[in-house]
Each structure stands twice: as C-alpha cells, then as structure tokens.
C-alpha cells in the first residue's frame, strides 16, 4: 500500500468504462447515452494519463487533452442532433428512432 499502483487507476477506469458501455447499450434517453459516452471517454483519459505517468512520457497527457477537446466537439454536435430529433418527433427515446429498420 505504499506506492500508487498502476493497476488501481486502470481498474478504476475499467469500472467507468463498463458503466459507460452499459449506459450506451441500455439507455433509451439520448442525453443519458451521451453522458455514458462521456464516462467512456473519461475512462480512456485516465488510462492515457496513468500510462503516461507509468512510462514517464508526456504524450499521455497531451492525448488526454486532445480527447477532451474532441469530447467537447462530440457533445456539441451530439446534443444538436438530439435537439433536432426532439424537435421532429417530440421525444428523445432512441427506441423510437428506427428508420433503419429493414
């Protein structure tokens, strides 16, 4: 228990990641799905930084930064889409979004 272990960060991120996956797959509210995606991205970020620290390189932090930027963009566009869907169908229930049904 003396030193910080690499694994504790990785396992934490695994929990976040799994929770995020569950959310993406199981939630019918589009906004919550977006939040779940944030969870996943953050899990990845923790991994990146942890490995960066582990290897003593700065690249991990830099890429985490990029991920944050991309996440911001993603949320922006994602919410715009959600809004559009809501405007068209008065609902953000993904179960009703099934135009791809064959």
């Amino acid at each position: 228990m003396d030193d910080l272990m690499l694994n504790q960060f990785l396992l934490l991120s695994a929990i976040l990641f799994s929770a995020g996956v569950y959310g993406v797959l199981a939630k019918r509210n589009a906004v919550i799905v977006l939040m779940s995606i944030e969870l996943i991205l953050n899990a990845v970020n923790i991994n990146l930084v942890a490995f960066g620290a582990h290897n003593g390189t700065i690249a991990g932090s830099v890429f985490a930064l990029f991920v944050i930027a991309v996440a911001a963009a993603e949320v922006g566009v994602g919410l715009a889409i959600v809004l559009l869907i809501y405007r068209n169908r008065k609902s953000v229930d993904l179960d009703e979004v099934a135009q791809m049904k064959g």
Partner: peptide
C-alpha cells in the same frame, strides 16, 4: 433481428 435500432445492433456487436 433487423429492428433498425442502432442500439440493439450495438448491443449485439458488443
């Protein structure tokens, strides 16, 4: 199986 629901496809895939 062909529900057209992206989430479901994703679920299967994952």
């Amino acid at each position: 199986m062909q529900t057209g629901k992206v989430q479901q496809y994703g679920a299967i895939l994952f």
